[in-house]
């Protein structure tokens, strides 16, 4: 996988996060503050990734019309969808870290930690190796 491919895979997940969190906030009032904070974080990350990828003269992947995240009918299922997405973002950041050096690797690792901590806010338990299979 090239660094650009890894950035694109991460961007696709950030698109999904920007779609998911408003849905969670709209359906579950008790999750609204957390969903709003998560939305703002992922929106900013998405925008930063768009700039990085455009800076590489590549065409950023676009958002999908909708995403298959399973049922969000209950608050527990919504939390599960959010933490599963953060876990996939952790994996994407870790993949990027392994194929890059310098500032891009540092950026990937910083966001790996952010995603790993975000997993906890949605009910995950700590793991020995967040992002690894």
């Amino acid at each position: 996988m090239t660094p650009t491919d890894a950035l694109q895979a991460w961007l696709a997940l950030e698109h999904e996060a920007v779609w998911l969190h408003p849905v969670i906030g709209a359906r579950h009032r008790d999750l609204l503050p957390r969903a709003r904070t998560a939305f703002e974080t992922h929106r900013d990350t998405r925008d930063a990734l768009l700039r990085r990828i455009e800076g590489l003269d590549a065409e950023p992947v676009s958002t999908a019309l909708t995403y298959d995240v399973g049922s969000l009918a209950s608050a527990n299922r919504a939390r599960r969808a959010a933490r599963d997405l953060e876990a996939r973002i952790s994996a994407a950041c870790l993949t990027l870290a392994g194929v890059t050096e310098g500032d891009v690797r540092a950026y990937a690792v910083k966001n790996l930690t952010r995603a790993a901590l975000a997993e906890l806010t949605w009910g995950a338990k700590p793991r020995a190796f967040p992002g690894l299979p």
């Binding site: 952790s90 870790l94 870290a97 790996l112 790993a116 901590l117 997993e119 190796f129 690894l132």
Partner: peptide
Amino acid sequence: RVLAAMSAGVAQ
């Protein structure tokens, strides 16, 4: 990748 993942796990 191993060290980065360990770092994230310890941060958790």
